[in-house]
């Protein structure tokens, strides 16, 4: 079974470009309905399927995503 992961998104720096959405293998991310202070819909977690692969963070042009992944037991 895949290890569990999690992401922290700096929503104020997110520009809602959606590049991370298609990079995620488990459709964990979607754009928010709300906007941040710059007026952008930002990326947010919509399920708990994150495996901590960091694909989203790697393609994020604005470096807004921090990724965690549980250690192998």
């Amino acid at each position: 079974m895949a290890r569990k992961g999690d992401v922290v998104i700096n929503i104020e720096k997110c520009k809602g470009c959606e590049v991370c959405l298609s990079a995620c293998p488990n459709d964990v991310l979607a754009l928010s309905k709300e906007v941040n202070s710059k007026g952008y819909h930002y990326a947010m977690k919509v399920n708990s399927e994150c495996i901590g692969c960091a694909n989203c963070a790697i393609v994020c042009p604005d470096a807004v995503i921090t990724v965690y992944r549980e250690k192998r037991k």
Partner: peptide, 30 residues
């Protein structure tokens, strides 16, 4: 899960914390 020892990816400190002025989705940032 979100503990320092589980950290697998964060912005490198060789990049400053400034917000990039590039348009959304621009490849420059990456």
């Amino acid at each position: 899960i979100k503990t320092p020892e589980n950290l697998v990816y964060e912005k490198t400190s060789v990049m400053t914390d400034r917000v990039l002025h590039y348009c959304p989705g621009c490849g420059h940032g990456t």
